[in-house]
Write a protein that binds this DNA or RNA. Structure first.
Ligand SMILES: [Zn+2]
Ligand SMILES: [Zn+2]
Ligand SMILES: [Zn+2]
Ligand SMILES: [Zn+2]
Lengths: 141, 141
DNA sequence: GATGTTCATGAGAATCATTCTCGCACAGCG
DNA sequence: CGCTGTGCGAGAATGATTCTCATGAACATC
């Protein structure tokens, strides 16, 4: 361990503030993808007022630290959700937002092999599945 | 042919205008995903001036008619490209935009089966693969 | 070719998510 | 208890996309 090494409270080197804690706590309770605007409103509603700019900044830092997944909806709005550390994809209910994390090695291998066959390197992929969950299929509109 | 039946030049019921033709012709020449702003600039550069609002409107109508694919980049900008009519996905070079259309029945079946196992209905999916193409890997920065 | 109805166009304003600015507050540290 | 650099936030700025609405053009009909 070199001299300049900070090694603060958590591994990310982020300071622990009321705002960051409130946002992390909220995300911990939620199970669906929510937009930054949504999260900001939810925080305000529960009394943990946080500036909108801070919500955006903190979400971005959490994404950079790999603690959140981001999804871009068709209307261009980004949605965030806490995620497990291992690589996975999502099955999302387009009605209520309920989300299931799914992993599938064959898909991973297919993407890598297919890209390699076309001479592509440094490959990444994006796989999301949308549908209507059982509860929403049953429930009235 | 009944009386009220329009049956215009193309099947879509869209009027044939100079602006629409110019945009369609441009898209026909391009092989990569380009943003609406890009396409607007390209049209202007080649002398086929078209209003920005018209570019957006026309792109949207072509997407609705299934003649274009849309991709939402991480910065929230939508990119468009002409597409073949059958279901497929893309292998996109994140450096030059070169795109290869790929189809893979196993992935289709996996998505459908996996969603069904979780009780989801009305399933759709989104699968895109990004990488650096052979040419861009070789070329200097 | 002339005409009327209807849809398309486009300049500019409006919308809206996201980012930036920058002075002030405070977490972490000794 | 101060110091210092990072985090905060109100408001402005950005930038893509959409809307408004008066004008222009396509097309079926005469
Ligand atoms: Zn649902
Ligand atoms: Zn994967
Ligand atoms: Zn390339
Ligand atoms: Zn597919």
């Amino acid at each position: 361990m070199t001299v300049g090494d900070p090694a603060p409270a958590d591994l990310s080197g982020r300071r622990s503030t009321r705002q960051r804690s409130a946002l992390v706590a909220l995300l911990e309770e939620l199970d669906e993808f929510r937009s930054a605007q949504d999260l900001h409103a939810l925080l305000r509603a529960r009394g943990d007022a946080v500036g909108l700019a801070t919500v955006y900044r903190t979400l971005q830092s959490l994404v950079d630290d790999g603690q959140l997944d981001v999804l871009r909806s068709t209307d261009g709005e980004a949605a965030y959700r806490r995620c497990s550390p291992s690589h996975h994809h999502h099955l999302v209910c387009r009605s209520c937002g309920r989300t299931v994390e799914v992993a599938d090695p064959p898909v991973e291998r297919w993407a890598a092999r297919m890209a390699a066959e076309h001479g592509f390197t440094d490959v990444q992929h994006q796989v999301e599945v949308f549908g209507t969950c059982a509860a929403c299929t049953t429930a009235p509109s």
